[in-house]
Nucleic acid binder design. Sequence first.
RNA 1: GUGGUCGUAGCUCAGCUCGGUUAGAGCGCCAGGUUGUGGCCCUGGAGGUCGGGGGUUCAAGUCCCCUCGGUCACCCCA
Length: 423
Amino acid sequence: MADTFQAPRGTRDILAPESERWHVLVARFAHAARQAGYRPVIPPMFEDLAVFQRVGESTDVVRKEMFLLEARDGDARQALRPEQTASVCRMFAQHRPATPWKVFYSGSNFRYERPQKGRYRQFDQVGAEVLGTDDPDVDVEIIALAWRFFEQIGLRQVSLQLNSLGDGEGRANYLASLREYFGVHVGALSAQSRETLSINPLRVLDSKRPEDGEIVAGAPRMVDHLSPQDRAHFDGVRAGLDALHIPYELTPRLVRGLDYYTRTTFEFASAALDAAQNAVGGGGRYDGLVADLGGPGVAGVGFALGVDRILLACDAEETFGPPPSAVDVFVVSTVAGTDALELTAELRAAGIGADRAFDSRSMKSQMKAADRSGARLALIVGSQELESGNVMLRPLRADTHQQLVPRVEVVARVRAALDATES
RNA sequence: GUGGUCGUAGCUCAGCUCGGUUAGAGCGCCAGGUUGUGGCCCUGGAGGUCGGGGGUUCAAGUCCCCUCGGUCACCCCA
């Protein structure tokens, strides 16, 4: 007996109609991004491990979730991408495009972690980045692009959380005061948070453990330690969001999981999803990353949105269903010969969506298939039609009668019938 | 990586507590009722190594152990 196989852990097969929503979602995002002057980039699925290590040696993504590739010569250190921002920055450092460089992308990322609903080892993101300017208006444009996209696909329960992590001296001062504060209260922290503290004190702020709640709530806040320049930048971002009427919540505890973030950080959370996996997207500014990857010292800002989670949120909000069938006409034939073959090909060549049955099934069976196809019209060829040089045009979604039409006029008659039933 | 929980037709689930003829239902699929017509209805059919392996027993879907997978929480993130 043959062995049976299943999709690897943390991956899944996406079949229609889910796969159809998926494609439409990505296409809608691409359209929105292109309308805002962003152009697509297609980075490789894997990179030198060192590229991803720049997202932060202290992050879980780098420390334990990397999909390493075993090279034939045994010493090439490469890994499947856990995200695409690092690749985009590497692309910039390599090709030095003119700035501002506005790009978008979509595709799979890989993280080796314990799967859950809405969290997979292979997961898809769409994202956009702007490199080469630190104008706060760009932060606003980036956030607005994601925000309008959520609106466009019908999500109403998404909220924007906003924070600034500062940079340079202000950031260093803040980290010092944070270490001091947690140092005093280390005994009251959970064991896990104590460990996190030694790796990256910032991330303790992100703890969801109840016993940490009080300590975290009383911790010093980055927004109180911003340098005058970073304060001005943050004020600029807020003013821009206000001008566009995009509501946001200031979330001082929002630190995000990647170490490269500076100044503006943000996250989109869906109230329609369970709390643990409610982030449908996030991003921020990363002004030092391109330089870390051997490029010029240019600023950058961007976001990534999780395709799987957006669709889960759409399910929860009952919006963005699968697209209607692309099949307009279903050809039914009970005669031997190439009539069904030719009719179907002729319709398709004329730009009319057409499908048919195979295996010489009974008319009843073929009509069932026609019904299921979602087509609005059935085109029936039987012996009577064949002899008289006609085909039977039968509406499937309307109460109007079927009619005989001359075979030679079929494309024009089908087109007229489709136009008539357009709603 | 840690802990909980679940796994029986393609799908959703009964049966397991208390081991005992050929493992069921609904939906879906196929065919017929209707020798030229889908949806509604009726009838029939196909489809299962009860996730996999081992153990206990005269006997295991049912009890025990291991394992794989889903799911939930933590960690972290999309």
